[in-house]
Design a protein around this nucleic acid. Structure first.
Length: 905
DNA sequence: CGAAAGCATGGAG
DNA sequence: ACTCCATGCTTTC
């Protein structure tokens, strides 16, 4: 049997439903009423052209073209032909359409009190009349009336049609007449909640609300209807049914891809009894489905909606819903809540095109009250209005705060607007932003027992929350069109770029000019645009994003240089790059700790028994590692062997990792919002870390995490340098480190010379500046014997070196701020290390510190200040800083251990 | 004075 | 150049 087709071009419903029995016909029998739009036919309208499967798929019997009934692209399959037939747009077959006749308007068939209603149908009949007679049982009558009323204005019995102006005010007369289903129906100026009349027949001045549940109570099968067009009884408001999707290549393309996508998508599990899948069901069996933005159904206006507002409900969610609701859910549009949308003002800015396409037309700025149900079935009344704006309009929904709060939505979450057909009732769903704090509550927040004890209004809506649940759970990072997901993806890639690879270099250059960092800032700015671009707007620096960043960074931590492969180090403009012929490999994460004897050791956890095993410091483990792989300790190469480390020691060991992560989280906002940490920041971090590490003695974590690939065995220029106090390089040493250092030194000297000559040239031109420059030259040499290492002193000195001038205000907007932070960090560093600043300065010397950091700790980005400072270092200082023999320093060779030591003392 | 309402502004596409 | 829209600012209540 073919499906039944409504040939009302504004409806086009195809289903397997039994249609409603209508009024008696003079020719005998009863009218057959489309269950959805109420269009009347003399006979059932069967169409054998298409086979309608239970699953909702529809297949052309001739060409095999398949579409889902709920698919808005069904227009491409089903075409209402002028002569009243239905054809497949693919093969143009229409021959098997049963010949039917829409009921003509015959005066004696129109029950008293009903007015004839012209249809825009291109079919055989031009005028449709929904008539009610004594022969029709009351229930059918009521449903019919509801359906008709819901779909077409002015179709109420005149005796029962109240004066809209009386309740809505004169200036809203237009809108008041534009009741389509629940849209605009029953509103009053005072925004009193709409009270559905208990009985249609008793209604005097209020219009009966279309109740989806009522309709479907009498329907034995789920609706598999297809919407092709909307009723057009009211010239001012045409429901945005799809009709005319054939226009435009873009939509055609979307349709095509949509079909393909459907074929390959996994089928969702059947929801549990109440129509909701439990979270475990969802988690277990739901395969993430691509969240494809649906081309919107067509509403008023010719403007295409921006894709960002396209509803992204998946087809299966839609299918599920349609089945659950026994009606057709028509996703209209969605919007990511901005800060102001979710704020206390309670105004939700509606995309103009969406508002004009899917909401009732309003001519007055005051607009009209709009009743929208939320996912919990609660009905809200918002004021739908607009503000004049630049010869245009700005549409808003006012009074949304309670609803937003009810749904626990925040900026960044998405609200969805859908329509339930038949009836055109607006429904507001939502989708939580991925990984938002309340994400876990998504499923649990779903109403339980959706159908129990609720009013009839709630049934379908609660199922709509299924959409939300699914939608939330279906969020995948690949949902490329989701702004937030995109933002996270961006974040991810940024983390990759700025943290990992940026840090991976031994020498950064100017934090403020970091070419990697800069795009990060831009992208960050761009990313936040979605929910606010101004400073006071809510930033999306959620902890989740930070967590993601860190997690990615941690992932970088697992990247190891390919085994037995030494990088070639290339220096490009003083930036040294490790180059590997092979990509890095993933390794098991281990913890490095210091042995009591002074050396280092590595600890790894067995993947099977979770015991920790001590390993040589220089081994790299595969991602999966068990005790049986412990070839280094025959006594502990089995999971049965006891753990070597005591619980207390283990706790200390693990705490290092926790502290590290904690510290990263604390650092991250600064990373994200300002810049990569300067050398001093990193130094401070190292000091803090070192303080923590004091619990377990010297750990290599501080020496390895700044550059994730610096692991024992790493042969980069940093790691091959000797640790503190050991193995100083002779001036004649020609090792890689020394050669690099010499090369750098040479470059620095050249720069210095050049700079000096430039300065001299300036001096010759500007006599007045001569003295200043001279003093600058002197001042920029830091006197290590000086015990004036106060905070301000440090700032001043660094500032001088950063700008080449004494004036601290020379770069008020940049360096000063930065330096102030550096100074603060220095303070925190010293405090954390429990070491007097003056001793600190005395022992290490600021220039040395700075230059050391640009070598490794501040490996990703060297601040401009540091860079400049480097230029002013004396030869001796520079040599000292990089580890050549120098009297008062014993740890210059390897920077990180040096820092560790500083921090730990 | 605070909240709400209405309008203006400016960034982004 | 234009439109959209997020949100700030001003006015009104």
């Amino acid at each position: 049997m073919g499906s039944k087709i409504c040939m009302n071009s504004s409806c086009g419903t195809a289903s397997t439903h039994e249609w409603k029995k209508g009024w008696p016909l003079r020719s005998g029998g009863f009218a057959h009423l489309c269950y959805r739009c109420g269009s009347a036919y003399e006979d059932s309208v069967y169409c054998d052209t298409f086979h309608l499967e239970e699953s909702g798929w529809r297949e052309c019997r001739l060409c095999g073209k398949r579409l889902h009934c709920g698919c808005i692209a069904s227009k491409y399959l089903l075409e209402l032909l002028d002569y009243g037939g239905v054809g497949c747009t693919s093969c143009a077959n229409s021959s098997r359409l049963h010949s039917v006749r829409r009921i003509q308007t015959h005066g004696d068939e129109i029950p008293n009190g009903f007015s004839a209603m012209p249809m825009n149908n291109a079919g055989s009949s031009s005028v449709e009349s929904k008539a009610v007679g004594d022969h029709v049982d009351e229930r059918t009558l009521a449903q019919l009336c509801k359906i008709m009323e819901a779909n077409e204005c002015n179709l109420l019995p005149q005796s029962q049609r109240g004066d809209p102006n009386a309740s809505l005010g004169q200036h809203r007369g237009e809108e008041a007449m534009c009741s389509v289903g629940e849209v605009g129906a029953g509103f009053s100026n005072s925004m009193q909640p709409y009270v559905r009349p208990p009985n249609f027949a008793q209604t005097d001045n209020a219009r009966p609300a279309l109740d989806i549940r009522d309709i479907h109570d009498s329907l034995s099968q789920p609706s598999l209807s297809m919407t092709l067009g909307g009723p057009s009884g009211n010239p001012n408001f045409v429901l945005p049914f799809s009709s005319g999707l054939a226009e435009g290549k873009e939509q055609s393309k979307m349709s095509s891809s949509f079909q393909q996508g459907q074929r390959s998508r996994p089928i969702l599990p059947k929801p549990s009894k109440n129509g909701l899948a439990t979270s475990s069901e969802v988690n277990k069996s739901m395969v993430p489905q691509a969240r494809i933005a649906r081309p919107p159904v067509e509403g008023r206006g010719k403007n295409h909606l921006l894709p960002r507002y396209w509803p992204r409900i998946t087809d299966q969610e839609l299918q599920q819903l349609s089945g659950d609701l026994k009606s057709t859910i028509v996703p209209l549009f969605e919007k990511v809540l901005s800060a102001s949308d979710a704020g206390r003002i309670g105004r939700l800015v509606l995309p103009k095109a969406c508002a004009e396409a899917y909401f009732p037309p309003i001519s007055q700025s005051e607009g009209l009250p709009l009743r929208i149900q939320d996912v919990k079935g609660k009905e809200w009344t918002f004021q739908f209005r607009f503000w004049p704006n630049n010869n245009s309009r700005m549409y808003v929904l006012e009074g949304v705060t309670p609803c937003i709060q009810s749904m626990q939505l925040r900026a960044g979450d998405t609200v969805t607007f859908s329509r339930i057909d038949p009836g055109g009732k607006l429904v507001m769903g939502f989708r939580k932003a991925t990984n938002s704090d309340t994400q876990e509550g998504q499923t649990s927040s779903l109403p339980n027992g959706a159908h129990s004890g609720e009013t009839s209004n709630s049934g379908g809506i609660e199922n709509l929350s299924t959409v939300s649940a699914y939608s939330g759970l279906f969020q995948t990072p690949k949902a490329g069109k989701d702004p937030l997901v995109n933002s996270l993806s961006e974040h991810l890639s940024l983390a990759d770029g700025t943290i990992s690879w940026g840090r991976g270099q031994n020498h950064g250059d100017g934090a403020n000019e970091d070419p990697v960092q800069q795009p990060a800032v831009n992208a960050e700015k761009k990313r936040t645009r979605n929910i606010g671009s101004k400073s006071k707007r809510l930033l999306m620096h959620s902890e989740d994003a930070l967590e993601l960043r860190l997690t990615w960074e941690e992932a970088q931590d697992l990247l190891r240089p390919p085994p037995s492969v030494k990088p070639s180090i290339v220096t490009i403009e003083d930036h040294e790059f490790e180059e590997y012929d092979e990509p890095p490999v993933f390794g098991k994460r281990t913890i490095f700790a210091a042995q009591p004897s002074g050396g280092q050791e590595q600890w790894a956890q067995c993947d099977d028994c979770s015991k920790w095993r001590r390993l040589p410091v220089d081994v790299l483990l595969p991602p999966k590692w068990t005790c049986s792989d412990n070839v280094w300790d025959s006594s502990r190469c089995s999971c049965s062997a006891s753990e070597e480390i005591s619980p207390k020691e283990l706790e200390n060991l693990l705490r290092v990792g926790r502290d590290l992560k904690k510290r990263k989280i604390l650092e991250s906002p600064k990373l994200a919002t300002e810049r990569e940490p300067s050398g001093l920041d990193a130094l401070a971090s190292a000091a803090v870390l070192g303080d923590k590490m004091g619990d377990v003695g010297e750990s290599s974590i501080g020496a390895t995490t700044k550059h994730p690939r610096h692991r024992p065995g790493c042969t980069c220029i940093v790691c091959i340098q000797p640790p503190s106090g050991k193995g100083k390089h002779k001036p004649t040493c020609t090792c890689n480190v020394c050669m690099t250092v010499k090369r750098r030194f040479k470059t620095l000297m050249l720069r210095k010379k050049k700079r000096q000559s430039e300065r001299e040239a300036e001096i010759s031109q500007k006599d007045n500046n001569g003295h200043k420059d001279e003093s600058e030259l002197n001042d920029t040499r830091l006197d290590h014997s000086e015990n004036e290492g106060s905070h301000s002193r440090i700032q001043a000195e660094v500032a001088e070196t950063s700008t080449g001038q004494i004036d601290l205000n020379c770069h008020p907007n940049r360096e000063d701020l930065q330096l102030e932070e550096q100074g603060l960090n220095m303070m925190s560093l010293v405090q954390a290390a429990g070491m007097p600043m003056e001793n600190y300065i005395k022992q290490n010397g600021l220039p040395s510190l700075i230059s050391e950091q640009q070598g490794s700790l501040g490996s990703h980005a060297l601040s401009q200040a540091n860079k400049e400072n480097e230029r002013h270092l004396s030869d001796e200082e520079f040599l000292a800083s990089v580890g050549w023999e120098h009297d008062n320093r014993s740890d210059e060779g390897h920077k990180e251990p040096s820092l560790e030591r500083n921090g730990l003392q």
